[in-house]
Design a protein around this nucleic acid. Structure first.
Lengths: 340, 340
DNA sequence: TGGCATATTGACATCGGTGTCACAACCTGA
DNA sequence: TCAGGTTGTGACACCGATGTCAATATGCCA
């Protein structure tokens, strides 16, 4: 391990001067700087993070704690977004996956403290309220894809209500008047919020919101698991006397089953039925034929904004720190919806 | 920040003694240990990672470098597997996502050096050869889901050949004799390896391998992107005079389109056609009706084994260090294949 | 009781950087 | 010519832990 002192000796200057060069301190003579820089390069010197951190009593690492971000595959984009933002801040990321286990969570807060991380992002798989308890962690915390029931931390969440509105609004603009909905489990916050969005869009256009046209695509088993019943749900809707001309899906998986149900009745998408997804999981949206129009969950953005907020909380960058940031869910048009 | 000294003062002992307690040094009187432990708890003391690391000149952090693990969603399970293994080793994970950019990659090797990480895992999205160049990084490196063309590092990769064998073998055992294959892009290593697996299984059973029954489900566009053409590929196979009774898919996305193609011809799965996926992306396998039988890519295991190997390389645990570990791809039986 | 092994504890230096402050060399303007 | 300012550099202490080694207390045996 080559140290500051080694470089200093080689360059014939004091360690402090090398330190200045490394940190771009302007109070160094240009010639000295160049000479030292050259030697740093030649010797492959890299400043020791530990020593620096110890002296400065905080690190350039940000902790990211997640429950089980891998469960819904794309929520891992929160991590990618965070990484992207941290890279610009010249920071790095210490990651902790807790599997939702409070014991692990507590341990990792300790780890974060031990590492003197500059702050933490707490990200969840599903948009939901969380209660962090008192993690005795002094630095800033930003919640991503979740929010504090006690409003104790600021949060970055998808605008599910807006997303629901966007789904409905787009179909209405295409001329649809009978719109079925195969929704997620009613206990999810997303379902409630999007429902509000649908109603707003319907009301705006003077459409009647018919509750019988909204059926769940997932049902919760007694053991807590979920069964995907969208196929039968969609069949039910499509067999009604007045068949809906479009179906809004709670997520893209539901759309897969809606496609299959339509096919089984000899209906084709989008000629006989428009289908609108949610989540924009490319693995599904690009795979279905025709490719699925969907509303995206802006995970990448959420991660990015979370670390930007963190920098503001820590006073390292300018800007306001709103208690909650709603990130819009953009419409991704493909070929599963048509004008009627 | 409460330090060792603070605890020592409070306990009326020397800092060194507190250090001994923290590190479970047996040379401490039981009564002293208990008293000090109690005060550590009460004061919420957490040892400073930086100071410890500096003194010991290595850290308990492992670096994980990835190209773009989020692209194929489930390859993120490599990360989860690694995390799970590291947790048992009482280590943590510094993560670096390079987007495949060599400049970022070089930067992150420097970051790893600066952090004095105990070792590194280099994970890729696709099973492929890599050339790490000379990352001037002194600690151990293990490749996950990729391997060194120059055999300079040890690697953990899925047994694609075995996976292909498993796919074919299972169908053969169910009595299928005409088996179509809708494969991945022929340039992928996985395609080549699995092809070898199919042939072995066919040969074993005295089946004739008919190249005309293997068609690509993806085609590469001039711009390098890929188009999913499995629907038409499957139609082609299913319209042949002697229709195959089963189709092996290069991944689960292909299976989605095979299902759709079968439906469009009025064929049902599995009565008229057995379908076998690959990757076991639950988001697809659980969504299709009937649920898809598939062969899993053991990403979680790969990540886990990689960090175990790393510990061996660093001499922290016992066991051999093979140059390459092939991780089996297990068959996950669901309902898309039937006996004929 | 003296001598020696063992158990327990602490003083001190050290790891690799950076903050503080002093100091020398060089300007500037009166 | 000299006070006062600016620029560039280095000496030294210190961040919070641990390794080394010495010091003290205790126990045991002859």
């Amino acid at each position: 391990m080559v140290t500051l002192k080694d470089v200093a000796r080689e360059a014939g200057v004091s360690p402090k001067t090398v330190s200045r060069v490394v940190n771009d301190d302007p109070a160094v003579n240009v010639k000295t700087r160049e000479a030292v820089s050259e030697i740093i390069q030649r010797m492959h010197y890299v400043p020791d993070h530990a020593a620096r951190m110890m002296r400065m009593s905080h690190s350039s690492v940000v902790g990211v704690m997640t429950d089980a971000v891998a469960t819904t595959p794309y929520s891992v984009d929160i991590i990618r977004g965070a990484q992207s933002g941290l890279r610009e801040q010249a920071r790095t990321m210490l990651i902790a996956n807790t599997d939702g286990d409070p014991k692990q969570e507590h341990e990792y807060w300790q780890v974060f403290r031990a590492h003197k991380v500059a702050g933490a992002v707490y990200a969840t798989t599903y948009h939901r309220p969380v209660d962090l308890g008192a993690p005795d962690f002094e630095r800033g915390i930003v919640l991503a894809n979740c929010y504090s029931a006690r409003r104790s931390h600021c949060s970055v969440v998808p605008d599910d209500e807006g997303g629901g509105y966007t789904q409905a609004r787009h179909l209405i603009e295409l001329g649809h008047r009978r719109i079925g909905i195969v929704s997620l489990s009613p206990v999810l916050r997303a379902t409630v919020l999007r429902g509000a969005g649908y109603r707003t869009a319907f009301a705006e256009s003077g459409l009647f919101y018919d509750p019988s046209l909204e059926v769940p695509g997932f049902v919760t088993r007694p053991d807590g698991g979920e069964d995907l019943v969208a196929y039968d749900a969609a069949l039910g809707l499509l067999r009604r006397a007045e068949r809906p001309t479009a179906i809004i899906c709670g997520n893209d998986q539901i759309a897969v089953q809606v496609y299959a149900a339509a096919a089984s009745l000899g209906l084709s998408v989008p000629e006989d039925l428009s289908v609108m997804g949610f989540d924009d999981m490319t693995i599904i949206t690009h795979t279905l034929k025709p490719m699925l129009t969907s509303v995206a969950l802006p995970y990448f953005e959420i991660g990015r904004i979370a670390v930007d907020l963190l920098a503001r909380i820590n006073g390292e960058s300018e800007g306001p720190v709103p208690p909650q940031v709603l990130v819009p869910c953009p419409l991704i048009e493909r070929h599963s919806c048509r004008q009627v």
